[in-house]
């Protein structure tokens, strides 16, 4: 077998510095990449991207630079005398993180959540808070294909934190300040 390295495929100039793992692993002759895998690295314009998190009937979009984490669901420790959307606190690598469940607030009455529940943790340390999500988040690019529209009616304090709303493939995409919303909910829960 001839193991001489073959000439790399012509790549964009921006990708010369970094070669994607797929391109790096398939640069030898006789190995063909899967057509479904990218040959180039992601675009550097990630500032225009958001993490879209499924909560009830909406996709809540969060800025990537916030620092967030997805954690397996574990039964939280309830906090007495708190509302129902305050599910309690849980231990995330030694830090107690409050858990907020927006499903009762955003879903239609009586509608149960679909999918496996997970925790979407925002922030770090004492500033961290977790949101119960019903699926895995994905990255959503904010380009010209998404046109802003009037946001739907949402309960407070979430309605105040929505910066813009988009309608895409029949789904609601809400670009919001989720950190602020969680802070508001914490304050609200503490006031009860």
């Amino acid at each position: 077998m001839d193991l001489q390295p073959k000439a790399p495929p012509s790549l964009p100039e921006a990708a010369h510095e970094w070669r994607s793992p797929v391109a790096a692993l398939t640069r030898f002759r006789g190995v063909t990449p899967d057509s479904g895998l990218p040959l180039v690295s992601a675009s550097p314009q990630q500032a225009e991207e958001r993490w879209a998190v499924p909560v009830a009937d909406y996709w809540l979009m969060v800025a990537p630079e916030l620092g967030c984490e997805l954690v397996e669901w574990s039964t939280p420790c309830r906090i007495p005398n708190t509302p129902g959307w305050m599910r309690g606190v849980t231990n995330v690598r030694g830090t107690l993180v409050p858990i907020f469940d927006l499903h009762p607030l955003l879903a239609e009455a009586g509608k149960k959540a679909d999918g496996k529940p997970m925790l979407f943790v925002l922030g770090e340390g004492e500033q961290a808070g977790a949101l119960v999500v019903n699926g895995l988040p994905y990255r959503q690019r904010l380009d010209s294909r998404l046109a802003p529209t009037t946001p739907p009616e949402l309960p407070e304090p979430l309605a105040a934190r929505v910066k813009s709303a988009y309608r895409h493939n029949g789904e609601w995409l809400l670009d919001c300040d989720l950190t602020g919303a969680l802070r508001d909910l914490g304050t609200l829960a503490a006031a009860v």
């Binding site: 994607s20 479904g36 895998l37 990218p38 990537p64 984490e69 997805l70 997970m118 895995l136």
Partner: peptide, 30 residues
């Protein structure tokens, strides 16, 4: 997948420093 997502999130949070890590995380996610 979750791990890759977390990696992507961490990479995105790291900004320019996590750019290369984000690529790896994307590939792991795929």
């Amino acid at each position: 997948h979750v791990l890759a997502l977390n990696a992507s999130m961490q990479a995105a949070a790291a900004g320019e420093a996590g750019r290369g890590f984000a690529v790896v995380a994307d590939e792991v996610q795929r």
